[in-house]
Computed example of a mutant assay.
Amino acid sequence: MTNKNIKELSPEQSEELLSTLKARFVKNMNRHNGLEWDKIKVRLQANSQKVWSLNEMEKTGGEPDVVRHDTKTGEYIFFDCSAESPKGRRSFCYDREALEARKQYKPENNAIDMAAAMDIELLTEEEYRELQQLGNFDTKTSSWIKTPAAIRKLGGALFCDRRYDTVFLYHNGAESYYAARAFRGSLRV
């Protein structure tokens, strides 16, 4: 009997996801020059809970792909690389506090709690800008990013998008939500 707290895919699901990730890796070599799929695959196969998180990213429309290798830790870093903000994570406010502050028309969820449930992190502004060096993302949508505590304490939250061939950083009330805004995540494996 399996423990329900352990987040794992079946062997078939894992193989299917690894096949999807490999195809995306091969198709988008510009995102990971110098990296080798076989080394990434070995690391993934040794980290079943991380594979589960990647599957959650995939299921919600994130199209995760390797964007960097941390030579200090040996970890590979995956970002959501879908052209637009992931469809399965849209129309969420920023965090639980913002969700609870809404008196009416509450969204289904919030970005921080969903990311935590998926065992991933919201992209920082720096990571978001790094992603934008790899292509044109969020040209019609926007994505919540990790917001500094000082801004969040005052009721705000940050999001980014790409318009006019420029990456913009904006602010909004953390309780706001829009059909074209989700969040992008990162995962270290």
Rank of each mutant, 00 (worst) to 15 (best):
E8Q: 10
S10R: 02
S10W: 00
S14R: 05
E15G: 10
E16P: 00
L17A: 02
L18I: 04
S19A: 09
T20F: 08
L21T: 08
L21I: 07
L21M: 10
K22L: 07
A23Y: 02
A23V: 04
F25I: 10
F25A: 10
V26C: 03
N28S: 05
M29Q: 04
R31S: 13
G34V: 04
G34T: 03
E36I: 13
E36G: 09
D38T: 14
K39R: 12
K39N: 15
I40N: 03
K41L: 11
V42E: 12
R43Q: 15
L44N: 09
L44C: 11
A46K: 13
A46N: 14
S48C: 06
Q49F: 03
K50P: 00
K50A: 11
K50L: 02
K50W: 00
V51A: 04
W52H: 08
W52C: 01
N55G: 09
E56D: 12
E56R: 13
M57R: 01
E58H: 10
E58L: 01
K59L: 12
T60N: 14
G61V: 13
P64W: 05
V66W: 00
V67L: 11
R68E: 06
K72G: 11
K72W: 04
K72N: 15
T73Y: 07
Y76V: 03
Y76N: 01
I77T: 12
C81K: 01
C81W: 02
A83T: 07
A83D: 03
E84L: 04
S85Q: 05
G88V: 10
R89Q: 14
F92V: 15
F92L: 15
C93P: 00
Y94V: 06
E97V: 13
A98N: 08
A98K: 02
A98M: 05
L99I: 12
R102E: 07
R102G: 09
K103T: 07
Q104V: 15
N110V: 07
A111N: 02
I112L: 11
M114R: 06
A116Y: 06
A116N: 15
A117N: 14
M118F: 07
D119H: 11
I120T: 11
I120S: 04
L122H: 02
L122R: 01
L122P: 04
T124S: 13
E125S: 08
E125P: 02
E126L: 06
E126N: 09
E126K: 12
E126A: 15
E127H: 03
Y128L: 04
E130M: 05
E130H: 04
L134T: 09
G135W: 01
N136K: 09
T139L: 05
T139K: 07
T141A: 14
S143D: 11
W144L: 06
W144Q: 07
K146A: 14
T147H: 10
T147E: 13
T147K: 11
P148I: 13
A150L: 08
G155M: 08
G155H: 12
